[in-house]
Design a protein around this nucleic acid. Structure first.
Lengths: 338, 338
DNA sequence: ATGAAAGCGCTAACAT
DNA sequence: ATGTTAGCGCTTTCAT
């Protein structure tokens, strides 16, 4: 007699197969020390009962959940979406599942989600931090839960980190704009407390300084502050800017909308270079010139680095991996579209 | 003495607080039948030990994991990405986590992921099926795991289903194109075994028939077959089509690229109407006219419907919810951009 | 090569 | 109001 319809346990299997619980367990774990005949017999019983092992029960005993968490501000962002795909693929190869949580960029939500993941006994966490300064993973470190962060590094916290050459890429982008002869170049960013934002603005400033140009900055607390009204002052009147450098995808979305509302043409009225490539960026006339981040690789490296920690006993020092970006020239910078 | 640094158990808490295990458990579950002083005492011990309950252990006992699965072909698709956000929000309200799995539209992968979710003891599954005919959730039904599907209904399987008025919307879109005076209208679809694809093509056919126009169809097995070469025959030569109706986002991406490669202008050379709205669809000149699906609501309704099953004892018949779409006229259909 | 028994961290009868 | 005692489904010493 089976415990409950459609949910046989290993005890049921053992009973039906006429073996002990341990033998059934051995079959489940492909233990070699078994007579093939016995194994086959047990397997048959499993099939007959439609037996499925309970991963939670195994995890309780083994102190492993075979699940990792991925926490990011927003998975609609192409960077996070692409990285998620890579993370899922790596997790699957390792027999792991991915538990997801969005923070919306809110440190409190992030904190609560991290706690939930601890309670769920995840074996590791991949994090895109909401705030480089305030995000806190110490509770995980105390519990020896491996962590890998990407995109946004964590200040003062020694964890595996995968980032890109933010500052250099921003400088290169700004230099490109300067090479076009633009002097009045605006940088647009949101959430300046983010390391990525700060670094990209720093790169911009460095390029501007080297060229003897005056930095012009629109840095808002939240992306939603990037309204047409906020932009208007910079793209109208005699002092209007000639070009804009956008520090990430969300800013690009906002500013593109704003410029459209203000009837500014790209690059005739104002040139544009932005961080983050995305599907159809080449289809928005005259094609967006962007700093492309290796989004898939960011996720992939974060995941493989995490699994190194999960599976290795060795306690190597935190890895700091820095990936290169690619400057993709299309038409919005003022270059002739190919 | 605590079991292991940073991982106190309820037994540790009880011991430190000088109460029994059950009392500590009661505090954890906010049981009312407790002397406030005792509760406070226990809570203090919890705080002191940095105690975090083990959700897996609770789940093993309670036969609930407090996790749901969301399985879809691809989370980079704006429909799925938006729906995911809604699902996560609802799950969080219920104190649930979301385990994610992408199938890539492969039924075998889907099958394996469903099995993994069963083994993980998820309390419910939200599914965007890979194949209306072949996707199979019977293994879940046998185990009484609630399921809600959206976007793509499951043939012959009685589960809660959230869809949109696919056929009607497609007819409306085609009618709009016909009203512009176009007669040679091509429909482009991929994975014709999908119900959504079939329904949208059916709506198109019905509109064409009513208008006495001859249907012209490009239906491929896989999106990747939508190459410029495949398109070329339809948009070149004396018999080229005047307009194209695209049945979903992936097709739109492909065809937009193809038309660009073939140097066809929209709507001058060929008009376009497509299913699925997305960020910046209005920025691709002259603005894409689309059938907008209520993607957030699809996810939200799927999730709330699922939790009704998870939390309700009542065993009501499967819900079949059909949501309306919105026809968003921009410039690609030939209408003058606003 | 196989089995008996203990226990992972928690909840839930059933006492008291 | 609080404690005792079994398990949930599995893995794992330690026997045999």
């Amino acid at each position: 007699m089976i415990a409950r319809s459609g949910s046989a346990t290993l005890v049921d299997v053992a009973r039906v197969a006429g073996v002990s619980l341990k033998t059934a367990s051995r079959v489940l774990n492909d233990s070699p020390e078994l007579r093939p005949a016995t194994a086959a017999h047990v397997r048959e019983a499993m099939a007959r009962l439609g037996y499925e092992p309970n991963v939670l029960a195994r995890g309780l005993k083994a102190k492993r959940s075979e699940a990792i968490a991925m926490i990011a501000p927003n998975f609609a962002d192409p960077l996070a979406a692409t990285a998620l795909q890579a993370v899922q693929d790596v997790a699957r190869e390792h027999g792991y599942s991915v538990i997801l949580a969005s923070t919306g960029g809110d440190v409190e939500v992030e904190k609560s989600e991290l706690q939930i993941m601890v309670r769920r006994q995840v074996d590791g966490v991949i994090l895109v931090a909401a705030d480089s300064e305030k995000s806190d993973v110490k509770s995980l470190m105390t519990r020896k839960v491996p962590i890998a962060v990407f995109d946004e590094p964590l200040r003062d916290q020694e964890v595996d980190t995968i980032t890109v050459t933010n500052c250099e890429a921003a400088r290169e982008a700004t230099d490109h704009l300067l090479a076009h002869g633009y002097r009045r170049i605006l940088v647009v960013g949101a959430r300046p407390f983010l390391f990525t934002c700060a670094e990209r603005v720093a790169g911009y400033r460095s390029a501007m300084r080297s060229a003897g140009a005056e930095p012009i900055e629109l840095l808002v607390e939240h992306e939603k502050d990037l309204t047409p009204e906020a932009l208007s002052a910079f793209v109208s009147g005699p002092n209007r800017v000639e070009a804009i450098f956008l520090v990430n995808w969300v800013c690009t979305m906002r500013v593109l909308r704003g410029l459209n509302a203000l009837k500014r043409r790209i690059p005739k009225d104002v040139a544009l270079v932005s961080f983050d490539d995305f599907e159809l960026a080449d289809m928005i006339p005259p094609g967006l010139t962007v700093v492309r981040q290796p989004s898939h690789e960011l996720g992939h490296r974060a995941a493989t680095t995490l699994f190194e920690r999960i599976e290795d006993v060795s306690d190597h020092p935190p890895r700091k991996i820095v990936l290169n970006t690619e400057f993709v020239v299309r038409g919005s910078c003022g270059c002739k579209p190919k």
